[in-house]
């Protein structure tokens, strides 16, 4: 029997080697007891493995280039022209462009993560995931990582093209803080996505509808196209619970440091602290909710019933 390497090369024949056997152990107990390193490496490999279909899908079916990049750019442009029609100050164009770019990550979280476990159940993959030894959070990380490739392409395209076409000028004083806030926003978004994934798994078909609730209403309360300070108390509440709201506000303050920014929201450093807290809370909560809800799903037999 021959073997092929991962580059498709033929390797040396291994006559007599039992193709069915892989790293045999003396007993099932030995096979079952993994070291922490084995656990960690399995979860790490799971992230990469689960990201693989997402990334390969991008190259095999390319309609997303039109629908996920060009059209969203046009949608963002619509709001740019609203401000132009109103003869708004130029930094408002920048607010819209930045908001349009961050939309990409939010949509990735709600469409590609939050309801993904429910989708996996209806495809019949979920029970295979739960029957395998990796942690389900690694699967979700993998989905997020795979979807991140498309989202970041979309965000970059909107940001770069819109900036060039509409003449947006950024004025950044604290690059490190800006990059840090951006990364923290992503981490918090994906942590929230993981938590939503477990909740949506239990809510079944309602998950689809709840995802819809998280589009325009979240755009509104997050101040996607306007400074969130304008929403008063509602804006403050949003900043404390929605990563998109607090991250976007902080990035706007940092990206347009030289221009007048409506007062009423915390300073970027404080908002970065809020994001750190969100990351911790969401990841801890998501681990907890996934564990609880896995147990509930096993108890009620929901891991493999497609119609629920």
């Amino acid at each position: 029997m021959t073997a092929r390497g991962d580059a498709g090369r033929r390797t040396v024949d291994a006559p007599g080697r039992n193709a069915f056997v892989y790293r045999p152990t003396a007993s099932p107990q030995e096979a079952a007891n993994w070291t922490p390193r084995q656990v960690a490496m399995t979860n790490f490999r799971t992230v990469l493995g689960r990201a693989y279909p997402r990334v390969s899908g991008l190259f095999r079916e390319k309609s997303w280039v039109f629908f996920e990049i060009l059209l969203p750019f046009l949608a963002t442009s619509a709001f740019v022209f609203v401000y132009r029609a109103l003869e708004a100050p130029p930094q408002y164009i920048g607010f819209v462009v930045l908001g349009g770019a961050m939309t990409a990550f939010w949509l990735n979280v709600i469409w590609m993560m939050a309801q993904q476990l429910w989708w996996e159940k209806s495809q019949g993959n979920l029970e295979l995931y739960f029957a395998a030894p990796m942690h389900i959070m690694a699967v979700l990380f993998g989905m997020a990582f795979g979807g991140f490739v498309m989202s970041s392409t979309r965000a970059a395209a909107v940001l770069v093209v819109a900036t060039a076409v509409y003449g947006v000028s950024f004025s950044v004083d604290q690059w490190a803080l800006l990059i840090g806030v951006f990364l923290l926003t992503l981490a918090a978004l994906y942590g929230l996505g993981m938590m939503l994934a477990s909740l949506f798994l239990m809510w079944g078909r309602e998950a689809w509808h709840l995802t819809q609730l998280l589009v325009e209403p979240v755009y509104f309360v997050s101040g996607l196209n306007f400074p969130i300070a304008r929403l008063g108390v509602l804006g403050s509440v949003a900043i404390s619970i929605l990563p998109l709201a607090v991250g976007l506000d902080a990035m706007r303050q940092l990206a347009f440091a030289g221009s007048a920014y409506p007062a009423g929201t915390p300073a970027p450093a404080i908002e970065a602290g809020i994001l750190v807290a969100m990351v911790v809370v969401f990841i801890v909560l998501s681990r907890w909710t996934l564990a609880i809800l896995e147990r509930r799903a096993r108890s009620e037999g929901r891991l493999s019933v497609r119609w629920q």
Binding site: R45, R50, P53, P133
Partner: peptide, 9 residues
């Protein structure tokens, strides 16, 4: 291969 990664290979 994807599933092999889930089993830690």
């Amino acid at each position: 291969w994807m599933f092999s990664q889930f089993y830690g290979l």
